[in-house]
């Protein structure tokens, strides 16, 4: 079995505020294999982006990594000094941000930004770096790259800018890319192009991708596996088909039920009552218990960990390998389930 590119174990991220310590990420674990796309979904504030920032080492004070491990090719990177971390950023791990309109420095030509990044991470000279930059722009589908390379960001459309951002992320051929809602700010037709581009680059280069989004359509189309996050914890993680078609966690079920489909003749979409708790007010036990329609006593006391479900629920698909869920419903005696 191949080694994971990124391995996150029991990650905890905290924000120190005047009101006390807020735990934004609490015990998150996952692996991402070479060439694999892990989709991370969840409501706003579920900790998706913070997880991405933690991996790339860009948690800004008052935030801090309070526990757990992040490994890149088996090497711990969460405890590196800032300079060593900087050398990894861009070279081994890259990040793509949500808004291409604001991700590029408006005062520098696109080429200058590409060349600077290439020169920082490779041994190429200025002329070779420029040639490489043109090559990259061509690769991400920018027409006439020899000419566009001297353009300023404001001369590019939103979709084209996101292509430039992707080219910037690819400068040093990283092994892992955190894509933080890369398509949210784009219109639908452009979204599809960008997703196809990320998918293609990932396949061709064997780059692992962590795709943060709240768009289930994007996940279904792009990801190999998907992690559903809730209140800073992983509620469910597994192969994308299983999680989307047969979600196990009541929260994941609610989330998937909220996606409109053409086939199902539903009058109303499923709606999860209530809203996600504030970080300062996460309930004891399972974080989802106040909103869960299948809640029982144990959920209010004991926190479930993502685990391989031991029992299926009645009338549900057989359990798939690699599918883990943090829910007591699947770990206890089925007789209790019926009660």
């Amino acid at each position: 079995m191949t080694e994971p590119v990124i391995s996150v174990r029991d990650l905890r991220v905290e924000f120190v505020t005047r009101k006390g310590i807020l735990r934004a990420i609490d015990g998150v674990s996952f692996d991402i294999m070479p060439g694999e796309v892990l989709g991370v979904v969840g409501e706003s504030g579920a900790g998706k982006s913070v997880t991405g920032s933690a991996i790339i080492g860009l948690i800004e004070p008052p935030g801090r990594i309070a526990g757990g491990e992040i490994r890149l090719h088996g090497q711990r990177i969460d405890n590196l000094d800032p300079e060593s971390l900087r050398r990894i950023r861009g070279r081994k791990i890259a990040m793509i941000f949500q808004d291409p309109l604001t991700s590029l420095n408006p005062l520098y030509r696109v080429g200058e930004q590409l060349v600077e990044t290439i020169l920082t991470h490779t041994d190429l000279g200025p002329a070779a770096a420029r040639a490489r930059a043109i090559e990259l722009l061509n690769e991400v589908g920018i027409p006439a790259p020899e000419r566009r390379i001297d353009g300023y960001p404001h001369e590019f459309s939103g979709g084209m800018r996101q292509r430039v951002v992707i080219a910037l992320a690819l400068c040093a051929e990283p092994d892992f890319i955190v894509a933080d809602e890369p398509t949210t700010a784009l219109d639908v037709s452009v979204q599809a192009q960008i997703i196809a581009l990320i998918r293609k680059l990932c396949r061709e280069r064997g780059t692992a991708v962590m795709l943060v989004t709240h768009d289930m359509g994007v996940i279904a189309e792009t990801a190999d596996r998907v992690a559903v996050m809730y209140a800073g914890r992983v509620a469910e993680i597994g192969p994308v088909r299983d999680v989307v078609k047969h979600p196990l966690h009541p929260y994941a079920k609610g989330l998937m039920g909220a996606i409109p489909t053409l086939e199902a003749e539903a009058d109303r979409l499923v709606q999860i009552p209530g809203s996600m708790p504030r970080l300062s007010n996460i309930p004891q036990g399972c974080a989802f218990n106040p909103r869960c329609d299948r809640v029982f006593d144990r959920c209010r006391v004991e926190r479930p960990d993502p685990d391989i479900p031991r029992f299926g629920l009645e009338g549900e698909a057989p359990l798939m390998p690699g599918h883990r869920v943090a829910c007591h419903l699947y770990t206890r005696n089925p007789v209790e389930n019926a009660s």
Partner: peptide, 9 residues
């Protein structure tokens, strides 16, 4: 943030 994420000096 993006410049930092690219590991620029």
């Amino acid at each position: 943030k993006f410049a930092k994420a690219r590991g620029l000096r």
